[in-house]
Amino acid sequence: MDKIVNQKAWFLVLPVFAVVAFSAILPLMTVVNYSMQDTFGNNQFFWNGVGWFKELLDPSTDLGGRFLASLGRNLLFSAIILAIEVPLGIVVALSMPREGWTVAVCLVILALPLLIPWNVVGTIWQIFGRPDIGLLGYTLNSLGFDYNYVSNEFDAWATVIVMDVWHWTSLVALLCYAGLKSIPDAYYQAAQIDGASRWAVFKAIQLPKMNRVLLIAVLLRFMDSFMIYTEPFVVTGGGPGNSTTFVSIELVKIALGQFDLGKAAALSLVYNLIILIVCWVFYTVMTNVGTERPEKKGAA
């Protein structure tokens, strides 16, 4: 659909601009301001220039070491959960029943974990995984595994990852399901006449039709896992040691725990910048995918 050029449309988007600018630009300016200063309490601030940023990117300092370590952990975490959730989500979407009342039941159960407050998700897995009172922890331990997410680093990671898979695979599955639903039956009939194999149907019909929603799924999952805070915080508290301290947890520790405003602000800006860059890459790719097949938009 060709859009009309009309500058008056700005009036339509003005309310949104005002609300989001109030919530985004004002606070971000505060952050920029803090990031250049140092404070010794008492609301006395001193100009520190780019000092915090230098420290932040230098792994030999305390701040830099903590930031880079948590960044590394966070990237590893995001990579692992994407590697699990995307294929699993596709498989689940392909396994969805075709019609009947079971579709509604499956959809509702799939969406259920997405609507649980994040700290309750943490609580659920905290309880579920405890060796003394949790079904999972108890079962694993009676089977002879020495499973304890509080003291063992590997177990803590496994718990946080399984929790995230539990929490968010449904999102990928629902997105893929929406993509699959938009494929007309004629495509499958044509494939059948050609005698296409199951794998060929997937590769030539289903995957291309899903790539747009998959892109959204990967974007959302990457972003949300990159800023994950509540769930691992409730379950492991960032421990044992610092082994599950992700960037957001580190940031909140510095900002609200130690009230180290300058350091926290510098970390915030770098963190935000990373997110902005990744977001831009995805957005560009996504709009390009959109313009290649403009007939998809608005259909269905």
Partner: peptide, 25 residues
Amino acid sequence: RYRFLGDKHLFFWLLSNRMAPAAVF
């Protein structure tokens, strides 16, 4: 419905706020 000055940038800026970490704010 419309194209206007800065529409794409504005849309991206909105999207980027959806992705901004709560911990920063």
